[in-house]
Amino acid sequence: MKRVVLSSLALLALTRVEPAVGGGPVLAVEVRDLLGAIDFVPTEDMIDGVMGPSADLDLAELAADPQADPGIRLRALRGLALYPTDGARSTLYGVLGTLGTSTSGSDALLLRAAIEALGEIGGPDAVSAITPFLAVGSTPDVCTGMRDVRSTAADALRVIGSPTAVPALRARQVEGVNKEPCEQVSLAITEALRALLGGT
């Protein structure tokens, strides 16, 4: 949070500064507004343009800050997907660790965003961290609310493209208590396997 505030102060000469929604860290208005984009994902150039050269570190601090506005934090997590650094990956792993048991509310959204971002920049090393989310909140024969997180996990494994994810994905297709009950997730798993196995 300190770094974000510092960045904001650095921008004071050019911009207005006001508290973020929800009484979280103070953000430059330009930062808040860009991270609050309605219908597009800001590019790295856009983010660097308002956050400066330490944008990845500022995003990481925002992403990890439980006091930050959930909507801003959500976009900060997704923004880390533009910065394939060890620091960004570390932040994303951290979020998986702290929010991994969340089943509802904005924490579930943050978890989903972290998995999605890790799919972009985590590489094969991230497979083992993501695969547990293929079954998170799953109850036999009941399509629970965590379906969105599970399908995001399948999508992330597809994006990573590592065959090491295949057993975990296949395990969710096998008849029995581990079979994925939601068609939304099953379709994502099938798509992931199709991508990983070359169209089968």
Partner: peptide, 13 residues
């Protein structure tokens, strides 16, 4: 819809 991907999008047109 339930949600949009990439995460953080609120709408699409």
């Amino acid at each position: 819809v339930r949600t949009l991907s990439p995460a953080g999008l609120q709408g699409l047109v």
